[in-house]
Simulated assay, not measured.
Amino acid sequence: MLGTLGPLGTLEVVTTVLVGLMVGVEFSVAFVMNRILDALPEDSAQLGHAHGGRMLGALMPYWYGGSLVLSVIWAVAGWHHPGAGLVLTAAGLLVVSVVMSVLLLVPINNRNKTWTPEDRPADWKRQLHRWRRYHHVRVGVIIAAFTLLVAAR
């Protein structure tokens, strides 16, 4: 099926699906997984957050980076096609999400993923709440990027 779309159409579909899946994972973290973890006893909640930080922290840089690269390729390859401005704007929003990640979320996550109940800082909950606020904003940014990619397709 993708072969019948041509190279640009295939790029559009693959990019849109990749970004859509990323949005789904990040939305789930924000509005499902964090609530589940927060309902666990304190030590279990903190251990779950640390494990999630390690697991997703290893994967998400590639996912965000790959989504951004594919969006930029789409914007360049489809420059003279309808929707190119939407794709370029989506790529810009993905840049914002990467910058937010590097400057705001990753430093907190890098601390969080090493904590144990024995050595976590006294303000660990406050740090996780700050991470969550930044994450909610980032989720909004990537939802907007995804919406633009869908509209451009």
Rank of each mutant, 00 (worst) to 15 (best):
E26M: 10
T116I: 08
T147Y: 01
M22V: 05
L88R: 11
G57Q: 07
R54D: 07
L47D: 04
G140Y: 05
T147M: 10
G140P: 08
A151S: 15
V139E: 08
L47S: 14
K113F: 01
M33A: 15
M1K: 01
D43M: 07
L94V: 09
L8D: 14
Y64T: 00
R126K: 14
K113Y: 05
R54F: 04
L59M: 15
V141G: 01
V139N: 04
T15P: 06
S28M: 11
K113A: 03
A84Q: 13
W124H: 10
R120N: 02
K125W: 01
A45P: 09
P121W: 09
T116P: 03
E118I: 07
L103G: 03
K113C: 00
H80V: 12
H80D: 15
H80P: 02
F146C: 09
T15R: 05
K113W: 03
G9R: 08
T16S: 10
T15L: 02
V25F: 06
I73P: 03
W131A: 01
G85P: 10
W79H: 15
V14T: 12
P82E: 14
L18Q: 14
T10S: 09
T114A: 12
L86T: 03
H80A: 15
P41G: 12
P7A: 12
T116M: 09
Y134I: 02
L148W: 07
H80M: 12
A144S: 15
Y134A: 06
A145W: 04
R35K: 13
M22W: 07
V23T: 06
G6D: 05
D123K: 02
E42I: 12
F146D: 10
K113M: 14
W115S: 09
L37N: 14
W74Y: 12
H49Q: 09
I36E: 09
H51I: 11
R153G: 11
M60H: 01
H81P: 00
G92Y: 02
V150C: 05
N34T: 15
V99F: 07
L56Q: 15
L18K: 05
A151T: 10
V139C: 04
L11Y: 09
V87N: 01
R111P: 00
S67Y: 02
V141D: 03
Y64G: 00
E26R: 01
T16L: 08
L5N: 06
R153L: 10
L148P: 07
E118F: 08
V95S: 03
S97P: 01
D43E: 15
G24I: 07
V95P: 00
L103K: 13
V99N: 06
G24W: 03
D123T: 05
A39T: 11
G57D: 09
G3H: 01
I36K: 11
G65S: 11
A50L: 04
Y134H: 12
L128K: 14
A75G: 08
N112T: 14
M55L: 14
T114C: 01
V29C: 06
L86G: 14
G66L: 11
G52P: 06
V23D: 02
H80R: 15
V76W: 10
M100R: 06
T10W: 05
A84K: 11
W131I: 02
P82W: 02
H135C: 02
K125C: 00
S101I: 00
W124G: 00
M22A: 10
L103Q: 13
V69K: 07
G78F: 04
L93T: 06
A39V: 06
G3W: 06
L56E: 06
Q127F: 00
